[in-house]
Amino acid sequence: MSAIKANSYVDITDVLCPITFVKAKVAIEELEDGQILEIKMNGGEPLNNVPRSLKDEGHKVVQVEDHGNGTYTVFVKKGDL
C-alpha cells in the first residue's frame, strides 16, 4: 500500500476522454497548492494522457501504482499555477 496520504480522491475509471481529464481537473482545482489528489484510472489512453495533461497544467505526478488488473492509482500534487 502507498505511504502517500491523499487529500482527495477521484475515480475516473467509469468515464471516457475527455471527461477523464475534466473530472481530474475539477477535483484538483478544489484543492490547495501542495495538496495531493489520488486518481483511480484505467490503463491505456487515460494513463497515457491524464497525467501528462495534469503535468502540462503545472501539477506534479508523485507516484503511480499498478493494481495489476488494468487499473492504476496516480497521486498528483497540486502545483502553483
Binding site: 475527455p18 471527461i19 481529464f21 475534466v22 481537473k25
Partner: peptide, 15 residues
Amino acid sequence: LERYSRHIILKEVGV
C-alpha cells in the same frame, strides 16, 4: 462536466 468539457480543459477557463 460533459457539456462544458472543452472549456474546462482550457487552462485559461477551467472550472
